[in-house]
Design a protein around this nucleic acid. Structure first.
Length: 171
DNA sequence: GCCAACGTTGGC
DNA sequence: GCCAACGTTGGC
C-alpha cells in the first residue's frame, strides 16, 4: 500500500471527518492488564484481540471515542474507569511475531487479519461499578447489550450514548 | 456445508 | 476450580 494510492480508494473505510464521538466497552483481565497499569503507561496498544466481532468493532473506532474500561475474570467484575481511543485502527503487530502468544501464521502483512487501536487512560471511577449492579439495570440498558447478555463473551462492544450516560451515572 | 471435538471466556 | 456458552477447527 503505497503513498501513490489515490485517496478515494480508502475513503470508504473512513467515516466522515466530522462525526459524532462513539462509545465502547473493552474488557481486560486485571491480572494481565488493569486500569492501574493503563494509568501508569498512559497509552497502550490494545493487542491480542483474536475474535472477529471484537476486531470489527475496533475497526470502527476513531480517535476521541470513549471507552468504558471493564475488569473481567476477577473477584468483582466491574467497570473501573474510562479511556479514550487514541489512534486510528491499525494492524496488530503481534500477529506477525512468531514469538508472540498472539502470533497468527495465517495472517499476512499484505492482508493483516487482526487490528487494534491505542487506548489512552482517562480516569478511574470514584468507585467501581460491579457487573452485579449493572445487571439490575438490564431493562434500561436493553436486551442487545452484550455485557449483560447471557453467555456473551464479547470483549469489545459498542455502547450507546444512553447506555454510557446511564452506566456512568451509577458512579 | 455439517457437526463433533476441542479450546477459550468469564461468571460464579 | 467448575462449567455453561460460545467460537473455531477439521474430518467427512
Amino acid at each position: 500500500m503505497g503513498r501513490g494510492c489515490t485517496r478515494h480508494v480508502h475513503d470508504h473505510h473512513r467515516r466522515p471527518r466530522v462525526s459524532r464521538k462513539r462509545h465502547w466497552l473493552m474488557k481486560t483481565e486485571p491480572d494481565a492488564f488493569s486500569i492501574d497499569d493503563l494509568k501508569r503507561v498512559v497509552t497502550e496498544p490494545w493487542n491480542g484481540v483474536r475474535n472477529y466481532q471484537a476486531r470489527n468493532h475496533m475497526r470502527q473506532m476513531q480517535p476521541g471515542d470513549g471507552v468504558l474500561f471493564y475488569h473481567s475474570s476477577c473477584e468483582v467484575p466491574a467497570i473501573v474507569g474510562t479511556a479514550t481511543v487514541a489512534s486510528e485502527p491499525y494492524p496488530d503487530p503481534t500477529q506477525f511475531d512468531p514469538k508472540s502468544d498472539y502470533y497468527d501464521a495465517k495472517s499476512t502483512r499484505a492482508e493483516p487479519r487482526w487490528s487494534l487501536v491505542d487506548v489512552k487512560f482517562d480516569r478511574k471511577l470514584k468507585r467501581a461499578i460491579p457487573l452485579e449492579e449493572i445487571k439490575r439495570h438490564g431493562d434500561a440498558l436493553g436486551e442487545g447489550f452484550a455485557l449483560t447478555q447471557r453467555g456473551s463473551r464479547l470483549s469489545v462492544m459498542p455502547v450507546t450514548a444512553a447506555q454510557w450516560k446511564l452506566l456512568l451515572s451509577l458512579e
